[in-house]
Design a protein around this nucleic acid. Structure first.
Length: 267
DNA sequence: AGAATTACCTGAGCGC
DNA sequence: TGCGCTCAGGTAATTC
């Protein structure tokens, strides 16, 4: 599923393919996603040129000259750029057709993705306004995490997956970052020390940045819908062994999400 | 305020 | 072969 690194790689790919293109028309094939696709899209977009593609957390922001198209890929969403028109297939919910024929196509089997439109500052949109700091930008560090964790007893894995605390950390990278930081995912947030918060913030930045770096060299060139460029240390390895101590990994559920950790290396 | 829970959705994998 | 079941999970909305 698209996590922050995949969304960032998608942003770079689409900015390369779309910047400067003028929209001819919009075809909404499936208006009923989990949140409905705004009806005004088809009226507002034609005639506008895409200036750039930005990212906030896992939201992609398309600068459309005075308005913003906002897309979240959810669990299974994918944005294809088609140089030529092509017949839509199953789960191809939305086409944005550009002058001369190219198409941006939104494909999403589980329909957890979200499409929004705003004429105002996209960062002020109700669904984006409360998102916490970007993990890869100054402002997210151990001091910040320490401050935010003082009044909360929720498991630290759920704390860092809370988008109001930090943007774009999903289940995969929450597991990976906690392993790298040597912190048990079920620790109450308020039990973390300042040095632990420093290690955790650094680990979050590292796993995200490394994934972006690997993806950019490996996967993005292929027009593949595949995600997950990284080999993960713990995610998806509930029956496996720890790469550090060789002991058995443990799998539990936190917030109804699968959680894997090493009970010896993570304290 | 913070925490816990539910809803949304379909493909994949499984046992029978 | 096919049925029914469980699982995967981001995030908004709801409830406690």
């Amino acid at each position: 599923m698209p996590e922050l690194p995949e969304v960032e790689l998608t942003r770079r790919r689409l900015e390369r393919d779309l910047a400067g293109r003028r929209i001819e028309r919009v075809e909404v094939r499936t208006p009923k996603l989990r949140l409905p696709i705004p009806g005004e899209l088809a009226i507002a977009l034609p005639g506008r040129t895409i200036r750039s593609v930005e990212r906030r957390g896992k939201y992609l922001l398309f600068d459309c000259e005075g308005g913003w198209l906002i897309i979240h890929l959810g669990m299974t969403g994918f944005l294809h750029f088609l140089p030529e028109p092509a017949l839509p297939g199953k789960h191809d919910h939305l086409d944005i057709v550009f002058m001369g024929g190219p198409v941006l196509r939104f494909h999403d089997p589980r329909k957890f993705g979200t499409v929004l439109w705003t004429m105002a500052d996209p960062l002020s949109h109700p669904l984006l306004a409360r998102i916490g700091p970007e993990p890869l930008i100054a402002g997210f560090d151990g001091d910040y995490l320490f401050r935010m964790s003082r009044s909360r007893r929720v498991a630290v894995k759920l704390l860092i997956m809370n988008s109001e605390i930090v943007a774009g950390v999903g289940n995969i990278y929450a597991n990976e970052a906690l392993f790298r930081a040597g912190i048990r995912p079920d620790r109450p947030s308020s039990s973390l020390t300042l040095p632990e918060c420093g290690r955790l913030a650094a680990a979050i930045r590292e796993v995200l940045q490394e994934s972006i770096n690997q993806g950019s060299t490996f996967r993005v060139a292929e027009e593949s819908a595949a995600y997950h460029p990284l080999d993960f240390a713990v995610y998806g390895r509930g029956r496996g062994s720890c790469s550090l101590c060789n002991g058995a990994l443990e799998e539990i559920r936190l917030g109804n999400r699968s959680t894997v950790f090493c009970p010896r290396c993570q304290v």
